[in-house]
Amino acid sequence: MRIHVYERLWLVASMILIVAFIATVTYGTVGLGITMVDDREETLSPGDIDEDERFEDPRIEQVGENEFEAYVVAMTFLFQPDPIEVPANSEVTFYVTSRDVIHSFTVVGTNTNTMVIPGEVSVMTVEFDEPGEYGIICNEYCGVGHHDMEAELIVVEEDEFDLTELSVDAPDTVEPDAEIELTATVSNGLIDDLEATVTVEIGDETFQEDVTVGGDESEDVSITVDADDLGEGDHDWTVTVDDYEETGTVSVASDTDENDDGSENGEDTTDENDASSTVEDRLS
């Protein structure tokens, strides 16, 4: 075949260019370790998401020193959990699946980007060096509300990050001659111990207790107050642990009072007030 000499040169240069492109991509994969989303996870039917221990409660878990796993569920038109909080200087592996149609899990302005296909679980490991805030969006058309599908990713300072949960168990009403027992449960999702001070305020009284909660454990702190000391009426209480706060009200009232005053409280049969706070209720 007769090919003009310039065209031969062009052909050779083109082949060199192509091989060079392939080499750079190969370097990115082997040298820089940019791995692809792939088929490492088993398929998971959308109907089984609520029975899957990873996705039944979408959350962040610590799995090693500076290593975390995030279990994320995408659905029309939201992500769970939202916001997603991770510490700086960490390595987070995201597991993402879809409850319905094809979505994406895309951290805007970064290369953290994967398709989320129902029946499949996408896995990608991301290093977070610096604190910052990012938008998470779905960038695959998923239906009429597609443009509303967004969430937030917050990378917090390493020493400000925790996986603490606070829940409080306290009665709603007590007899004037009874005791009010209030139990705060502090659980620690991190591997390292959590040193914290539990502060309980009720009426004019304040109690403080230092607790050490082991990794992946929880501790109860109970305080007891004589209802008489508070007197009859409604009394607000507040429990704080680090940045977490729970509040509630306890009524001190005698049975007879309550019967007389049935129009207001008589049908209020719940005598326990369970409150729990997770990351969503954080104050700061």
Partner: peptide, 30 residues
């Protein structure tokens, strides 16, 4: 490339094929 459920090796194979598709377009340019 961003789909779960497809192994990385297959993605690599099509990447090389795709790069070679540049050839007909570069020849056309000439």
């Amino acid at each position: 490339y961003l789909d779960p459920g497809i192994a990385e090796g297959f993605k690599y194979i099509v990447m090389t094929n795709t790069m070679f598709l540049l050839l007909p377009s570069l020849l056309t340019a000439f």
